[in-house]
């Protein structure tokens, strides 16, 4: 299954999605689009509404209000057939622990509206993709946490999905496991649209090109990772800070003092032009370093330090 109209309809589109659990509003008027072919990070602290949103997208939880469209198709009832083109990992992966990894996948492959064919080949194929070929015959209860997580991803890949929805894929993994999972995400991102949730920024910064940030049930930002990080600034190290500030102002930028120099926002002007003018003006330049706020700073600003 390949994506038709790759750029036209978003892989996931939610509009004003809202969920009340009794009096508690878990998700409030959330809207975002996951572009086809993107690796989309859904960021937020624990309890922000990420999992509830994902469960609504997958038809496990009924929205109180709002619309969901998956791969261009409006989803109104749970278990919509379009989910056959979606692979999902919802919180923990879950298996029949007394069965082997391969038997588990064979069982999952035989369920759903269109059984996966050819079943055995497909199962061996996804086991290979996640690096579990050697452990395929072992019972799942003997698997490490990281292996179960990878088997969960294999399960999500069974029906060759156009869209992968992965809820906290690195949750509870050790550093080696996180690294393996990150490599796996990168490998998968070529062939699928990937929607992954995480409370770990680093994760999203490293593998995602798009992101949305949710806090206390509300969407506080969304866009490309570049947009979220905000504009690039320069750190200019110079002993002649006052002269340098005048040159920056002449270029239409702004500057604020730093110890040993300035932080410069060029407002669109090219850094190389700045350097030439500085040299022409006799300003001694020790270093010019492009800087971007890490996603982490932006994230902490957005959700407030106490929540992150």
């Amino acid at each position: 299954m390949t994506a038709v109209n790759a750029d036209e309809t978003p892989a996931i589109s939610v509009r004003a999605l809202t969920k009340d659990y009794g009096h508690l509003r878990a998700v409030n008027q959330v809207s975002f689009d996951v572009p086809r072919g993107s690796v989309f990070g859904f960021l937020g602290p624990n309890g922000a509404g990420k999992t509830t949103t994902i469960r609504m997208v997958l038809g496990l939880v009924h929205p109180t209000a709002g619309q969901i469209a998956i791969l261009g198709r409006e989803v109104t009832a749970p278990g919509d057939g379009v989910l056959a083109a979606v692979g999902a990992l919802v919180e923990e992966p879950a298996f029949y622990k007394n069965l082997s990894g391969r038997r588990n996948l064979l069982l999952y492959a035989s369920m759903g509206p269109e059984p996966v064919r050819p079943r055995r080949e497909r199962v061996d194929d996804v086991l290979g993709k996640v690096g579990l070929t050697d452990a395929a015959s072992r019972k799942v209860k003997t698997y490490s946490h990281g292996m179960r997580q990878r088997l969960g991803v294999a399960q999500a890949l069974l029906n060759e999905p156009d869209l992968l929805v992965l809820d906290e894929p690195t949750n509870g993994l050790d550093p080696a496991g996180i690294r393996e999972m990150r490599v796996l995400m990168r490998d998968l991102s070529g062939a699928h649209t990937v929607f992954l949730s995480s409370h770990l920024l680093h994760e999203v910064e490293q593998v995602c090109d798009h992101a949305a940030v949710i806090n206390r049930g509300e969407l506080v930002a969304s866009g490309t990772v570049g947009e979220l990080r905000g504009a690039e600034t320069l750190r200019l190290e110079t002993p002649d800070a006052a002269d340098a500030a005048a040159v920056v102002a002449a270029l239409g930028g702004s500057a604020e003092p730093l110890p040993g120099g300035l932080r410069v926002d060029l407002a669109g002007a090219a850094p190389e032009d700045l350097v030439r003018r500085l040299v022409d003006a006799g300003v001694r330049v020790r270093a010019v370093v492009p800087e971007r706020a890490g996603l982490e700073e932006v994230y902490l600003q957005l959700v407030g330090e106490q929540d992150a």
């Binding site: 997958l58 919509d80 989910l83 056959a84 979606v86 919180e91 923990e92 879950a94 369920m111 509206p113």
Partner: peptide, 15 residues
């Protein structure tokens, strides 16, 4: 209880 229910439902198997 085992968590497999959600994976069956998203395959999807209609309820």
């Amino acid at each position: 209880a085992g968590g497999t229910l959600r994976y069956l439902l998203v395959r999807p198997v209609r309820r």
